[in-house]
Design a protein around this nucleic acid. Sequence first.
DNA 1: TTGAAAGCGCTACCAC
DNA 2: GTGGTAGCGCTTTCAA
Lengths: 371, 371
Amino acid sequence: MDDRSKTPASSRLTATARQRPSSVTLQDVAREAGVSAATASRALNGSTRNVQSDNVSRVLAAAARLGYVPHVSAQATAKGSIPTVALVVSDVADPYFSSIAVGIIDAAEAGGLVVTMTVADRSPEREVQLVRTLRGQRPQIIIIAGSRINDTDTRGALIDELKQYRAAGGRVVLISQPELPFPTVAIDNVDGARLLARELAGAGYRRLCIIHAPHRIRTSYDRYTGFVTGLEESGISMDANFAMETEFTRSGGYEAARELVERGLRNIELIFAVNDAMALGVMSALRDAGLVPGRDVAVAGFDDISSAVDVVPALTTVTVPLRTAGLEAMRLALADDDAAGEAGIPTVWIPTAVRLRESTPPVSGRLITVR
Amino acid sequence: MDDRSKTPASSRLTATARQRPSSVTLQDVAREAGVSAATASRALNGSTRNVQSDNVSRVLAAAARLGYVPHVSAQATAKGSIPTVALVVSDVADPYFSSIAVGIIDAAEAGGLVVTMTVADRSPEREVQLVRTLRGQRPQIIIIAGSRINDTDTRGALIDELKQYRAAGGRVVLISQPELPFPTVAIDNVDGARLLARELAGAGYRRLCIIHAPHRIRTSYDRYTGFVTGLEESGISMDANFAMETEFTRSGGYEAARELVERGLRNIELIFAVNDAMALGVMSALRDAGLVPGRDVAVAGFDDISSAVDVVPALTTVTVPLRTAGLEAMRLALADDDAAGEAGIPTVWIPTAVRLRESTPPVSGRLITVR
DNA sequence: TTGAAAGCGCTACCAC
DNA sequence: GTGGTAGCGCTTTCAA
């Protein structure tokens, strides 16, 4: 660490040393085209109408000949902001976030914006710090994708930071739960889990175990709550013994399931993990214990990540149109909601859909009765 | 100064209400701290040694009080470049690239650099265009991760663009194959595939089929070549009939395997797909045809993506330390190789390692003989 | 339509 | 040590 922090200093010096070597500027282009910088600027970016067409082409030609690329930072200092959208995700390697990113990137590119992606590493503190740093870049839009965590300290700090950004003319959009005073794209976790529970109850499942993450992680909490609600609506009351708390990861799921098997499954028929990664961990633990997922114990997840269809048996889960969520976020960001005023904070709900697969066969169809 | 006081805040608010709204500047901080802008700047960023300590604290306090965030673009126009590393990947949603990204992001953050990630969508043209756009942002480093594609037109354009960037003081690092005149982090695909082939040959496999992507995709070509080499080294000569070309995706693998089964497997004992996604597609096609992967036909892939251990049977593959590749790329980028001169283009080889799993049981241990 | 010139916010050089 | 001041490259009035 210490080493690392020292390393960049020297390299920065190095970079500084040859920092200002040639680089074609607007002046160069203007000179080459025989016009003023102002005209060149107008020809290149401003409303083309006000520049004589032959001058326009002359400038364009000169720019092409010289390989001119506008200095975005200079444009930014002159104009005030940069045509980028800064995206903060919790984890790049998680398909959940990368799918959202895909949607945002597609929509942004269509709008001529470049997406800058930074990673908060699932830490609320880091998230606040990142927003601070990003503010300095003056992006036009900041989108934060990630489950809210109940953590009042950083929550307040994040709101402050975001408000300052907005006060400086930036647009903020959140992809998570609608609990912060900013436009939000909300995934309907509660309802998805509720419907899943009802479907499973309809398939005959009665004895279930919910494996979830700590309740302060909203996504997990919402799915947990929704599932319980769905069960209750189906006349199944949740026995507290059948919920286990663990980490929000594959290994969290593995550990929980291992412990469950060790303690004796009783006659649990189905394990619902609040995300697919955890569910895969659960399946793995079951297999390691000599049990066959979907036959000995059914398993369900949430997210519908791509491996959900590659495991055997294919995983029952709830699909979340993540790319759509990303697109919607950009739509919200670009929407001119000044008209709407402060009347209401726009919230877009993204619906989810249950995907029943082989990991949860109808109970009656099961060949081997759970002991 | 006078100008400033004349530039009426009121007119700003009216004229360009959303364009240039308040935003604390260095001037504000300096005024608040009762020092000059120069001193404030030095206190905030320059070598602290040259500023009286009480002034430093006064400035820091003022900055904190005002919620000051430096305007990165302004710093950039003044300094010449921005403390960011621009990363170009082919596909965000692909774990291959997101793993590399993780490594780069970790290393960059340790060095105080922000990572900007853009997506070329597997198109060489788009890649060139992105580099052009990115050049405009004047990042300190540009890293391109993605398989080179034999495409001489865009290849030349890319080299030009990159050279111009370097001429302007930027650092370039490639993560792919060492075939462009820039520092490169190279994944040893050839050797990984070669060793895999030898291991499989050692396990008793003799009749194999290679499913690969078009040869102009270097990654696929290298793995194909390496695998063939490995077989030959083991005394197994490749019959051309046993290679199939398809897309570099899961569905490409699926289709190829489906076709293979349809045409009759003959007595193929093992299918090697040049990446795990394709291998998963192969497995899926086999299952859909009523065959059991690993029992009826063995399957092997390359990459060791996370689902490789979740499928049943777990997939034999070649693990690629992608995060390490990312770290190495940053190391190369920050390395002061001016001393080295143009003598040689630094290339770091990332070793790969074979992971034998249940999808390729030793042939003798198989219970059911392949028909 | 066009050019001159005044910034945008910040850094860096140069005297004091 | 510290404060003027001259840029950095670009946009945008304001006259002409």
